[in-house]
């Protein structure tokens, strides 16, 4: 059985695979929640302001309400890089299923079909749909061909811990090299004890245990990375 992962792989015309990470109902619920709060805060604030204008204000408020109800997500999704305020807050983004940014027409479709996703009363259809589809798509997403994904966090290049480069005593496969490199990159975030514990697993390779073993493993990572 294929191990479960939270990525959906798309292949670009350039022939490389890129990873999208579809977002599930929990986080989307909160994005929606934040959006609603923002929209209603805005509507109420404007409502108070516009109330002084009498019927004219009421008319303007109706228009605002219309815009907020139907077009707010569309505008933000298309012009804000696929993100409404709530999605921005929770690091989500709407994309087409092939990884392109979402355009006017798909965005309009996916947001109008909230009418269907909202059935019968409180988004039950949308919730069920996200749970049943592999990429957590609600009906509007399926029809419009869109996807809500977790925004990439923006990885900065990690700094390998300084250590004397050590050549491994035996030829390592690529996966093993990669694991050692990954260990070195992430070890600053483990506790010292845990780092040593992990390095101890490799003691047949490093020939040492405890802090000494850790140093050797980090040195191997340094060596594999390219230090001499």
């Amino acid at each position: 059985m294929q191990p479960i992962d939270t990525v959906r792989t798309i292949e670009t015309p350039e022939g490389v695979e890129l990873h999208l990470r579809p977002a599930g109902p929990v986080v989307r619920l909160w994005a929606f929640f934040v959006d609603q709060v923002v929209v209603w805060m805005g509507l109420i604030l404007f409502g108070i302001g516009l109330a002084y204008l009498g019927p004219l204000g009421l008319g303007l408020w109706f228009i605002l309400f219309f815009l907020a109800q139907w077009l707010y997500p569309v505008f933000f999704e298309v012009l804000g890089g696929g993100r409404t305020l709530g999605k921005r807050w929770l690091n989500l983004r709407v994309l087409m299923t092939d990884g392109r940014p979402v355009g006017w027409s798909p965005s309009l479709i996916r947001n109008l079909l909230r009418v269907v996703d909202g059935l019968p009363g409180a988004y039950t259809v949308g919730l069920v749909s996200t749970l049943l589809t592999r990429d957590f798509q609600r009906i509007g997403d399926i029809v419009a061909g869109t996807l809500v994904v977790h925004e990439e966090a923006g990885v900065q290049a990690p700094v390998l811990p300084l250590a004397e480069p050590v050549a491994p005593t035996l030829a390592l496969t690529l996966e093993e090299q990669s694991a050692i490199l990954a260990f070195a990159e992430r070890s600053p975030r483990f506790t010292a004890a845990r780092s040593e514990e992990l390095a101890d697993v490799l003691s047949p390779l490093s020939g040492a245990r405890g802090a000494g073993g850790l140093k050797v493993v980090l040195g191997m990572a340094r060596y594999l990375w390219g230090g001499r």
Partner: peptide, 22 residues
């Protein structure tokens, strides 16, 4: 099999460019 952080960094850069270009 370069280090996962590097692969991820390149992957994310490519993804953002993909979105921008297409």
């Amino acid at each position: 099999h370069y280090s996962p952080a590097l692969v991820e960094r390149l992957q994310q850069l490519a993804l953002r460019l993909h979105q921008r270009i297409y």
